[in-house]
Structure formats: C-alpha cells, structure tokens
Design a protein around this nucleic acid. Sequence first.
DNA 1: ACCCTGGATTGACTTATATCAAGCGTATTT
DNA 2: AAATACGCTTGATATAAGTCAATCCAGGGT
Lengths: 195, 195
Amino acid sequence: MSNFEALFDYIQEISGKLLSEDDKHLLMAHFKPKKLRKRQYFLQEGDVCKYIGFIVKGSARTFTVDEKGHEHILKLSLENWWLADFESFYLLTPSRFNIEALEDLEVLQSTNAQIEEYLKQIPAFSAMANVISQNYTIANQKRMQAAMSYTAEERYEDLVSNYPQFLQRFPQNMIASYLGLSPETLSRLKKNSFK
Amino acid sequence: MSNFEALFDYIQEISGKLLSEDDKHLLMAHFKPKKLRKRQYFLQEGDVCKYIGFIVKGSARTFTVDEKGHEHILKLSLENWWLADFESFYLLTPSRFNIEALEDLEVLQSTNAQIEEYLKQIPAFSAMANVISQNYTIANQKRMQAAMSYTAEERYEDLVSNYPQFLQRFPQNMIASYLGLSPETLSRLKKNSFK
DNA sequence: ACCCTGGATTGACTTATATCAAGCGTATTT
DNA sequence: AAATACGCTTGATATAAGTCAATCCAGGGT
C-alpha cells in the first residue's frame, strides 16, 4: 500500500488539471510501488532503464564512473522528482549511468509503454509532461550555463540559493561531485567564503 | 518568398507524419520569414525572447557575457535547428542570453501563442515537438556529462565525431568557447594530439 | 593593390583546482 | 562498548588551463 496521493497531488499541481476517479484507477493499475534500501541500485550501468520512477520518499543520485574509477554525479533527486536515465528509457539502449538510493527510497515505477498510454488517456498527465519538459529544458540550460561560465564558488552559491534542501539531505562530498569539484576543494571554498 | 519546404520536410521527417495542405497553409500563415545579416542579433540580453526561429539557412550562436566581459557560447546552431532562449520564450522573462548570426541567416519565426495553436491543430507538429523534447533531454544529459567528466581533449574529440560540421562552419575561437576553453588552450590541445 | 581586421599560434607566466596523504570526530555495526 | 567505516578538514605538491603579449597569416573592403 504505497502512497499514491503524492503522485496524484503532484500531477494535479503541475498540470493545473484534476484527475478523475478513472484516471486515478488507471494510474494505480500500472504504477508499481518499489522500495529500495540505502545503497541499493535503481539502475546499473550497462542495463536498459526499463522503468521510470516517481520518488515518494527518499533520495537518489545518478552518476557515472570514468576510466580512472572516479565517480561523477549528474543528478541528485528528492521527493516528487522523476528517476530515470531518459536516454536509455526512451531509446532502450544500455545506460551509461548508475542510479543509487542515498536514503531508503520509495518509488512508484512504470514502463515506457505504459507512460505512452497515460499520455494518450489522461489529459492531466499529458499536460504535466509538457510542463515538465519545459522545466527540464530551462533547468538544463541554466545548469549548462553555470557549468561553463561560473567559478566553483559561484556554482556553490547558486546551489545554496536554488536547492537549499540539498545541503540538508546530502553529504558534502556528494554535493562536491554534483558541482564537479573534489571534496577537498569544496571544503576549502566554504572556509574561504567566510572571510 | 522564403523556403517553407525546409520546414515542412523537417516536421514530416522528425514526426514521421505527413502534413496536409491545410496544415501547410496554417504554418505559412503564421511563420514569418526573417533575414539577418552576419553579426546581427536575433535576441539581445535583457529582451524577452518573443519569437522562436527555425533556421532555413545560416548559423548562429547563443552566448552570455560575464562580469569580466568574457563571452561564453552555450549553443551553436545550424540549418534545421530551432533558435530561442527557451526560458525567456516560455516564461516571458528577460533573457540572459544573446543570439547572434554568425553567417547571413534566414529563419522562419513564430510566437509562443502561435506555437501553442500549432500543437493543438497539427498532429505532425505536436508529434515533432515530443520527439524534439526527447532529443533535447538526451542531448542535454550527454553534454552535461561531457562537461563534468571529460577532459578538454575528450570534449574536443567528442565534438569532432558528433558534430564534424561545426569544424567547417565555425571559427576555432567559437568552438573553443563552446567547449568552455580559451582559444589558446584549444590551439595547443590540437597541436599536442598529433603526437 | 593595399590596408586592416579577425583569427590562429606560440611563449612566458599565473592561477585554480586536483591529487596525495595524514589526522580527527562521529555515526554505524556488531 | 569496541571496532570500523565514513565524511570532513588541512597541508604540501602537481597539473591543467587561463591570461597576457607578441607575431603571423589570410580574406574582405575600399
């Protein structure tokens, strides 16, 4: 009995439309609750990302491992975010990413085929998808700009003001990796910014 | 009499659907041809991006200027690409970007309100939008990963294999800025990679 | 044909960030 | 409660890339 209310609320809020009872039953029929314990993997590099997950509770990171064995975090995800490697999910290609629970994680997951169904059947769902797509495009554009034009310190300040929750929920070395910094550099940077 | 055929072909190819004669007339009614000479601006920082443009001919760059007066290129665009600051275009906020023609440029441009109309009225157009949205998401994910985990040299090689046209069409200092490098660094990097 | 501008290259030097290594405190496991 | 692992900090050093400056070359404009 996972909490579908979080998903319903989210869809209605983002789309600005209401879900009918039929809509809700359709969603409940094919979104499957899944629980992962901290450290468990939602997706492993090399596997196809068959499911997209809606985070009801907990957090996760999406990361790659380079040839030298260094990890790079591309995404940190919290409640009410979607979890997937979209490239693999859309194209059914093996993923280059790992997605790992950073805290005990509850998701509602569904397949691409089923999502396509929802897009056709549920107006609120399709409206939500359009809004999300816009938001992603905007967020990506911003993050890309930040990565290219900002100094490490500016990127950190940006994160502090835009995602203050991250500081509460994720250890500093994860934040560092997300910002493209070594943990040492982030530590020093914070110390210096007090002056 | 600008060339709408390029736009029609593009929509049909990406969407996998055909445009009816009515569809085409609708598109021709509200996409306005616009020509810019090299160096002219499609969008200036501080203005709202009222139009989205489909590039029929020519090229452009999207860039910011930081406090030190340094330019950072976020996007290089060629024929059959869409030109806009999506954040400003969707939200009607003043743009933080400049979009400048790098070669004489022919676009077909339209407003957001009109695009919404097309999405409702023209099935091929709406299918195209979904495909583009997927492609953008995938491309952004890749570029972000490249920016975070790759060395300058790997990013350059990536560009050489994925966008070889860029090397033909854009001067090296623009490529450098797009890769987040100084022109000097790119020059040296190319020299060394011969060894 | 000439000038002039923009782009590319090269050298010398500076700076930001990574790397390696050690030490410390706190939470987690058993 | 002891043992262990994890995360954070700090110092010393290395490295990649940026900056500044000079030169050279080619193409476009007059």
